Computed example of a mutant assay.
Amino acid sequence: MFDSGVFFWLKKLLAQLVMPLPLLFLLLLILLFIINCRAAKVNALANGLVITMLAIVLLSQLQISHLLGGSLEQRYSANHQAIQGECTVMVLGSGHSLTLGLSATQQLSPTALARLVEGIRQLKLSEPTTEAPHSCRLVVSGWNGGREGASHAEVMALAAQELGVSKAQITTFPEARDTIEELMSMKQIMGEAPFRLVTSATHMSRAMRIARSLGLNPEAAPSNFLAGDGYWWRLSADNLILSQASLHEYVGMLWLDVKRGWNN
């Protein structure tokens, strides 16, 4: 009989091998081996496919994805500080579905829902005063992506109401198409007044950089932390998502540097 420990790890290994990423990589290696044996002329193509698949595998691996994403997520810690007096909490948008029959919270993408939940948590950190007993405002933003139907900001507002926020507390920016436009809209109503800025932990560094360049005074309240614990040998689509989000942010910050160089 198998030792219970050996059986446990064998089960884990077999479970990994039938997951999409490891299984596809293994099948690709077998296919490329067959191709190389039968047609030497396609070696260059085969090598290119191996490199491409290897890159996908590495980006799906725990340490690599955390190396990329952890450095972004660690720049700002979760915000648990109370908000004194008047407060404004802004939640940056992140997509929604147009599927009929779903509630507003169900229409939100997982990222958008995580951001909204954190935004509502921030609202509850407000400490009402005699002068401002119910002054906390929730700002949500995002356009409709060029599609017919409600804007992302409107879906976010409806979802916030489903989660207990009163309609009177909510301000929407339904025309803002990206982070820059969202924060430019915020500048018009906030000026230099402080506010809580909620977005994904990987996105927070770039969002704060844009906000400060516009003269805004945000306090970071990151959400949706993706760099969690796990086994080094486990390939995961979650790790791949973290790698993708992180690379997107690095490219975005590089683009900000390029734009600043042009403007100077």
Rank of each mutant, 00 (worst) to 15 (best):
residue 124 K to L: 15
residue 181 E to P: 01
residue 37 C to W: 07
residue 39 A to P: 01
residue 199 T to D: 09
residue 9 W to H: 10
residue 115 R to M: 03
residue 98 L to S: 13
residue 118 E to R: 15
residue 76 Y to N: 12
residue 44 A to R: 12
residue 185 S to D: 15
residue 125 L to D: 01
residue 27 L to S: 09
residue 166 S to R: 12
residue 150 A to C: 06
residue 262 W to M: 14
residue 16 Q to P: 12
residue 104 A to N: 13
residue 36 N to A: 06
residue 97 S to I: 03
residue 5 G to I: 11
residue 74 Q to S: 13
residue 239 N to P: 06
residue 255 W to C: 05
residue 249 E to C: 05
residue 216 L to F: 09
residue 147 R to N: 14
residue 163 L to I: 01
residue 18 V to L: 12
residue 222 P to Y: 05
residue 148 E to T: 05
residue 37 C to S: 12
residue 203 H to P: 13
residue 85 G to E: 15
residue 89 V to W: 04
residue 150 A to Q: 15
residue 153 A to N: 02
residue 49 L to V: 09
residue 164 G to R: 14
residue 36 N to V: 03
residue 70 G to P: 04
residue 122 Q to H: 02
residue 225 F to D: 08
residue 142 G to S: 12
residue 77 S to Y: 10
residue 159 A to C: 07
residue 239 N to Q: 13
residue 33 F to V: 08
residue 59 L to G: 14
residue 258 V to Q: 11
residue 102 L to P: 03
residue 98 L to F: 05
residue 48 G to I: 05
residue 157 A to I: 00
residue 134 H to Y: 15
residue 29 L to M: 12
residue 61 Q to R: 08
residue 103 S to E: 12
residue 19 M to A: 15
residue 183 L to G: 02
residue 151 S to A: 03
residue 170 I to T: 02
residue 184 M to A: 09
residue 70 G to I: 10
residue 193 A to K: 14
residue 75 R to V: 01
residue 36 N to S: 09
residue 32 L to T: 00
residue 80 H to S: 14
residue 28 L to Q: 10
residue 100 L to I: 13
residue 153 A to K: 11
residue 189 I to T: 09
residue 170 I to A: 00
residue 102 L to I: 04
residue 197 L to T: 01
residue 52 T to N: 07
residue 260 R to H: 06
residue 42 V to R: 11
residue 148 E to N: 11
residue 164 G to W: 08
residue 49 L to S: 10
residue 193 A to T: 09
residue 235 L to T: 02
residue 199 T to I: 09
residue 103 S to D: 05
residue 249 E to A: 02
residue 60 S to H: 12
residue 170 I to G: 01
residue 113 L to E: 07
residue 18 V to W: 14
residue 136 C to F: 05
residue 225 F to T: 04
residue 13 L to T: 11
residue 12 K to Y: 00
residue 37 C to H: 06
residue 82 A to D: 10
residue 231 Y to A: 11
residue 6 V to N: 03
residue 175 E to M: 07
residue 25 F to T: 07
residue 79 N to F: 13
residue 190 M to F: 05
residue 75 R to N: 14
residue 178 D to Q: 14
residue 11 K to M: 07
residue 84 Q to H: 10
residue 44 A to Y: 01
residue 137 R to Q: 15
residue 108 L to Y: 03
residue 36 N to K: 03
residue 86 E to V: 10
residue 33 F to N: 08
residue 227 A to V: 00
residue 264 N to Y: 02
residue 41 K to R: 06
residue 4 S to P: 08
residue 44 A to Q: 13
residue 85 G to S: 13
residue 74 Q to C: 08
residue 226 L to R: 13
residue 123 L to N: 09
residue 260 R to L: 15
residue 62 L to A: 05
residue 71 S to Q: 14
residue 117 V to N: 10
residue 238 D to P: 04
residue 107 Q to I: 02
residue 198 V to Y: 08
residue 27 L to F: 07
residue 144 N to C: 03
residue 35 I to K: 10
residue 206 R to Q: 00
residue 21 L to T: 08
residue 243 S to H: 03
residue 232 W to R: 04
residue 146 G to Y: 10
residue 175 E to Y: 07
residue 221 A to E: 04
residue 179 T to A: 01
residue 50 V to S: 14
residue 130 T to P: 01
residue 141 S to V: 00
residue 125 L to V: 01
